[in-house]
């Protein structure tokens, strides 16, 4: 199967600090790839390089290639198109201070969709996909910040879905949520992978085990081991991986 994202010998610097060392990995389409590792290991940094959110950080330098469907995203790729195709869900839910409807319609609107009927359809579809439609369909005009944390996060996922992405990056999407909300997001991820390629950074080992198809373990900016999640969790090759996932360090 052809890789959705292909990362080749990627080095990343924050100023003088080298955050990623020659990372190479292949992300398969319609799979959930979990990036795990101790804090500061470079997993979030790697995630940010995939939709060039790292561009916002002053003094960051990228060396190496990231191919998305065969195109180098650090080449001539239009950054707006890239972020449209590779959406991102953040650590803590960050709905905008506007209505639920406007939150979802925000993306389509900035990409030029103005027709009310089309927007209505997109909003409903995205909310349904994010499994939150039934809960909030009667208060679309209500403030998004009035929702519970778990609902807010699913709303944020719906907001990403509304721009019809191809890949969804998730940066510890459940770290701010309670167990039930976490379960819901995990179920949602399992459902979404049928249509999207998902890359998730998580500190929660169990979560990586539960939801991902393959897992990449990072340590000090190096990709220590990557493989099928069953393999990583049942019989990893690297002793460091085993120590980390069994909680012996990190």
């Amino acid at each position: 199967m052809r890789s959705k994202l292909s990362i080749k010998e990627l080095d990343f610097y924050y100023g003088d600090f080298k955050a990623l060392h020659k990372v190479s990995m292949e992300i398969e389409p319609n799979k959930v790839t979990a990036l795990i590792g101790p804090s500061g290991c470079g997993k979030s940094t790697l995630l940010k390089t995939l939709n060039r959110m790292n561009d916002l950080v002053a003094g960051s330098v990228v060396d190496g290639t990231v191919l998305y469907d065969g195109d180098d995203i650090y080449g001539k790729y239009d950054i707006i198109q890239l972020r449209k195709k590779i959406g991102m869900v953040f650590q803590s839910p960050n709905p905008f201070a506007m209505s639920i409807y406007d939150n979802i319609a925000y993306g389509p609107r900035i990409h030029g969709i103005k027709n009310k009927k089309v927007l209505d359809r997109i909003v409903e579809k995205s909310l349904r996909q994010a499994a939150i439609w039934e809960e909030i369909k009667n208060r679309l005009k209500g403030p998004a910040l009035g929702l519970s944390g778990g609902q807010q996060q699913r709303l944020c996922i719906a907001r990403v879905l509304a721009v019809e992405p191809d890949v969804i990056l998730m940066d510890e999407p459940t770290s701010a949520l309670d167990p039930v909300s976490t379960s819901r997001i995990e179920d949602l991820i399992d459902e979404l992978k049928k249509e999207y390629t998902i890359i998730i950074v998580t500190h929660n080992m169990q979560q990586a085990g539960r939801i991902s198809d393959s897992t990449a373990f990072f340590l000090n900016g190096y990709l220590e081991e990557m493989g099928a999640t069953e393999k990583i969790f049942f019989n990893p090759d690297s002793k460091k991986t085993e120590d980390y996932i069994s909680g012996k360090f990190g």
Binding site: Q206, G209, R210, T229, E230, F233, F234
Partner: peptide, 12 residues
């Protein structure tokens, strides 16, 4: 047997 082991490992 392996399947159960993996479920134990990944789903806790």
């Amino acid at each position: 047997f392996d399947k159960v082991a993996i479920v134990l490992a990944t789903e806790q």
